[in-house]
Amino acid sequence: MRYVMVQIPKSTTPALPAPRSVPTSADVARLAGVSRATVSYVLNNTSAVRISEPTRRRVHQAAKELGYVPHAAARSLRAGHSRMVLMPAPAVQAGPLYSQFLNDLQWALGRLDYTVVQYGSVGLCDDEAARAWAELRPVAVLVPGVELGPAGVAVLKRSGARAVVTLGSEPVEGAHALLMDHEGVGRVAGAHLHARGRRRVGVVVPEEPGLESLSRLRLAGVRDALAGTDAVVTELPLAYEEEAAARLAARWRELGLDAVFTYNDEYGMLLMRALQDEGVRIPQETAVIGADDLMLGRLLRPRLSTVHIELPSGRDLAELVDRAVREPGAAPETHQVLGSSVVHRESS
């Protein structure tokens, strides 16, 4: 039998480095010179066991040096629940005021060792949305607007959510509720314009999808403030576009309005610029008032009058979530929030 030796040329492709093993809590314990239990206590912020500050620093330094990150799923199994707080993304782009509120809330929840996850659920509502959220097994869900009903709350709680908090104009059975009084925003704006001697009041109703429920409540508030007076309220549908504002401004004198509540400051700035371009004098011919008290409104000339809205602090809401998680059997709480007050400036 003959054997043929074949020489295989060396590959010119550089060898890939061997994959590094994933660091474990045992590795952290060895490097820090402590037990695995101590590592767990430190990295999970366990308050039941007292750990000295030098030991905590050693553990954190070792974890950083090794690139160790605790396994969220394993931590959830040990605790019996996750530390995830799910926040469905708003159906429409959040304004600066609401965005700042969300930032404060996420920071406060992070300080309490929760992880905040925003879920893009555009097109989903109530039961369908609740089932999608429940798949992630959050320990708490914060739902803005009117996107959830009692059946959806039940779905979330059956999946393990210990706290469901809604932010809207009406409470939802089974959920903690933060009631946002949007009618009150329109009410104080309408009362302000009437007190300034205005009697033909327009109210902007945004045409953007998702804003109708809030804008209708603010319109109702203006109507309520002016009910029984000699004032007349005119509804003004308006898209958030320069062309739409220009078309409305072009027929302003035909409408015969001497005041307008613009839903918020962004629409106020849009419409006020269009009215000025049309030669309408503000406030001599038309008084303008917005809402949200944005910094940009103070930079306009004339400065924009506005309704200052007092949202709950992120810290207060985070503490409500934490309390509900720790006491899942407690009765749902209802809190009235969203205080409103007029900031009078030159535009009205």
Rank of each mutant, 00 (worst) to 15 (best):
N264F: 06
A175Y: 09
R281Q: 11
R20T: 15
D181E: 14
I282N: 05
V188A: 11
S99T: 14
A48N: 08
A225E: 00
V92Q: 12
D181G: 07
D104C: 08
L338E: 02
E207P: 03
Q93I: 13
R75F: 08
E183T: 01
V321Q: 09
L304A: 00
T115A: 14
L296E: 14
Q61N: 10
V116T: 15
A73N: 07
Q284K: 09
G228W: 08
T234W: 00
D293P: 05
A177T: 08
L193S: 02
V280S: 08
G174M: 05
E254R: 04
G290H: 02
R273S: 15
S11K: 03
P209H: 12
G279T: 03
G95Y: 02
R187G: 01
A26E: 10
A227P: 03
Q276C: 00
A239G: 15
L214I: 13
T229R: 04
H308A: 15
L214S: 11
E346D: 15
L112S: 11
T46Q: 15
D27V: 11
E207R: 04
A245D: 09
R20V: 14
G110V: 07
A91D: 15
V288K: 04
E208F: 11
S52F: 11
L248E: 05
A195F: 01
A72M: 12
A140D: 08
P9W: 13
A32K: 04
G221K: 04
E241A: 15
V201L: 04
A94Q: 09
R247N: 12
A330G: 03
E327Q: 11
A291K: 00
W133L: 15
H176E: 06
D230S: 10
E183W: 00
A108E: 13
S76F: 11
E208L: 14
A32V: 02
L320R: 00
L320G: 02
L257V: 07
D258S: 03
A15V: 05
W252C: 11
